[in-house]
Nucleic acid binder design. Structure first.
Lengths: 115, 115
DNA sequence: TGTCATTTATCAAAAATGATATATATGTGT
DNA sequence: ACACATATATATCATTTTTGATAAATGACA
């Protein structure tokens, strides 16, 4: 499991880093961020896609705003949210990799077949 | 910010994924995992390196155990902990990348120098 | 028995969460 | 201007979870 990572930055900024992870550490917010990863969306669309109840969604979005990882743009009645923090994307990418079917696993159609 | 990620796996397993992130979403546990990323350590060493109060550290370690991302080995009086979940390493690697000084930033000595 | 290393139990304070109600902002029809 | 609808935000409340601190329990070994 030794990975040879240079973790000094993470260690030194543990509060900041863990704070960012905390934002993704609830299924609702994680889903929200997943949707926004595909591009800007108005609140109503996020609500429809994630199924998160509107007031709670709004509270979560407020939190993401406060933490500075999303920004907003108003277009008449709608408010569009989008991700602004590249660090979030980096983490999401890692999650995709980490949770992708393991190379060599039965259901990974893009890889070789065994035996 | 569009990243072209295949997030289906993450969306489908939002509970599981966010649960894993929750483990890293507190500075103490994040520090613990950082230390373990460098290799197996006994509790006393983790305590010394992270400065986390011993009973709380033990509770955090119990949680990591319960969630299955560390395993233990007893050697007489000491108990050695080590990371067993490759997904954790993947996330830590992403964090290192995300929080590393931006390429071209003044204090990144390993990269090219500009102008 | 005693000591070291670690775990478990307990408690109070703080934070997160889901649910519900209310408020604000924008736009529309009159 | 008024009333009304839509889109989003804020407030409140009860419940649960997390956290730091402190005390007590367990397991290994001299």
């Amino acid at each position: 499991m030794q990975a040879g990572l240079d973790l000094e930055m993470v260690r030194a900024r543990a509060e900041e880093v863990s704070g960012l992870l905390k934002l993704l550490s609830h299924p609702n917010r994680l889903l929200v961020v997943c949707e926004l990863a595909d591009g800007e969306l108005p609140v109503s669309a996020i609500e429809a896609r994630t199924g998160v109840a509107q007031p709670n969604l709004s509270r979560d979005l407020a939190r993401l705003r406060t933490e500075g990882i999303v920004s907003t743009r108003r277009q008449s009645k709608q408010i569009f949210y989008s991700l602004t923090d590249p660090r979030i994307i980096a983490v999401m990418r890692a999650l995709c990799d980490a949770f992708a079917p393991a190379p060599g696993a039965a259901n990974d159609s893009s890889k070789e077949y065994v035996s």
